[in-house]
Simulated scan of single mutants.
Amino acid sequence: MVIEGARSWLAAEPRLALRSTGADLETLLADEQSPVDVILLDLRSGGRLVIDKVAELSRAGRRVVVYSEDTSPDTAMSLLEAGAIAFLGTHEPREHFVQALIAAASDQPYVPPVLAGAIVADQSADRPVLSPKEREALLLWFQSMSKASVARRMGISEHTVKQYIDRARIKYTRTGRPAATKAALLARAIEDGLVHSDEIGPHARHSEPIEQSGYGESA
């Protein structure tokens, strides 16, 4: 029923193309005939919870949007921490379903209502906690490196670099302090002591005016 419902919604959206479907994640991935931009993952795939698969897929560079009837704040936030690009409740309307998938395909975070509620309910401190890899990616990016250069420096894919940066943005959104641009994210990171100004270098500090968050890279 979930698969047929998703198929129906996707068929009416010209910006999205459904490549394959399946009730079992391993079988689905093994049978892929062409590359996919986004995996829409039912949290109860194959009759069991597959929370562990989200982190595994994320580490493999996959963009994952989780679709679940369990919309508790703890579940939603734990899946974001595991690397999901977005979290959707099965009761949410087609508009959010489609927009979450389109945003994920462009490596952009999307906050549908159920996730917004989870963020509001989250009791985390105002200062986000970044993983060592997230901080390293941000620091190199702030040092006027392109994401491709950061990827080469860290020995990872450019997509993974984008994931680290997007996760940092999501964490700031969770604290009620969004940072949509590179300049805004740099300002937040310096404010919170996650990055020190002397680590950035004179070129980045002078080329990215952090007081004006409307400037800078938005990717």
Rank of each mutant, 00 (worst) to 15 (best):
V2G: 09
V2Q: 13
I3N: 04
A11H: 14
E13W: 10
L16W: 09
S20K: 01
G22V: 13
D24V: 13
E26K: 09
T27K: 09
T27S: 13
E32W: 07
P35K: 01
I39V: 15
D42A: 05
R44Y: 07
G46N: 07
V50P: 04
V50I: 07
V50T: 10
K53H: 11
E56K: 08
L57V: 08
Y67L: 03
A82G: 04
G83E: 09
A84K: 09
A84V: 06
I85G: 02
H91Q: 12
Q99L: 13
A100Q: 03
Q108N: 08
Y110R: 13
P112C: 12
A118I: 01
A118F: 03
A118Y: 05
A125S: 12
D126V: 15
R127Y: 01
R127L: 11
S131P: 06
R135F: 06
W141S: 10
F142E: 00
F142S: 03
S149H: 12
G155W: 11
S157M: 11
S157F: 13
Y164E: 07
A168F: 01
R169D: 00
Y172R: 14
T173D: 13
R174L: 13
P178L: 00
A179R: 06
L185C: 08
R188N: 08
A189D: 00
E191T: 14
L194A: 11
S197R: 04
D198Y: 11
P202I: 07
A204Q: 03
P209Y: 02
S213M: 04
Y215P: 01
S218M: 02
